[in-house]
């Protein structure tokens, strides 16, 4: 079973312009484009990787950060195995909005226990010199909100991006280390229910 590739759906959320699309492109295609359009709705790319001897296919869903695209993106939250909350270290508002994003995700993804759901926090654009959010602030927030892993990344300079996504895989596998999660993609939705039920009993 472990030799079989399993599909993990992870979703990038965060304010518009914090670099979600760039992070995805950097990780999957190792490319960076300063002139990306706004993402409309959702987009996704697949990436196969091996973490701790296990082969997984990471399906990374990139979403539109702007409020006006909300109705387009929210239907795709369901079935996510992990949520990457992204902010930009040079924009304190995007950091303050993390709470909002977490709530929106929990609501639309229908997560029963947001506390135990694997979130990973990314502070992007560390290549920018004028920071508005310190590492300590971010780490404190992660600690207070369920002890989520925190990564400071730069899609532009390819700093920490791969590490962050690998951590995503680890945290998903750690929380879902059960054979039923090795089923192909189409059944991911169904798998979620039994898991949360076993958890709450």
């Amino acid at each position: 079973m472990s030799s079989k590739s399993s599909l993990l759906k992870v979703i990038l959320l965060g304010d518009g312009g914090v670099g979600k699309s760039s992070l995805m492109n950097r990780y999957v295609s190792n490319k960076f484009d300063t002139h990306l359009f706004h993402t409309i709705g959702v987009e996704f790319l697949n990436k196969e990787l091996e973490v701790d001897g296990r082969l997984v296919t990471l399906q990374i869903w990139d979403t539109a950060g702007q409020e006006r695209f909300r109705s387009l993106r929210t239907p795709f939250y369901r079935g996510s195995d992990c949520c990457l909350l992204t902010f930009s270290v040079d924009d304190s508002q995007s950091f303050l909005n993390l709470n909002h994003w977490r709530k929106e995700f929990a609501y639309y993804a229908d997560v029963r226990e947001p506390e135990s759901f694997p979130f990973v926090i990314l502070g992007n654009k560390v290549d920018v010199t004028e920071r508005q959010v310190t590492t300590e602030e971010a780490q404190r927030w992660c600690h207070e909100n369920g002890g989520h892993p925190y990564f400071e990344t730069s899609a532009k300079n390819a700093i920490n991006v791969a590490e962050a996504f690998e951590e995503v895989v680890r945290s998903v596998l750690a929380s879902e280390d059960r054979p039923e999660h090795m089923l192909p993609s189409d059944t991911v939705d169904l798998c979620r229910k039994p898991r949360s039920r076993t958890r709450c009993c």
Partner: peptide, 17 residues
Amino acid sequence: YHSSLASLNGLEAHLRT
């Protein structure tokens, strides 16, 4: 290919649903 793949995936998902 790379500049369009993600968006095509997304658009397809949108249209399908």
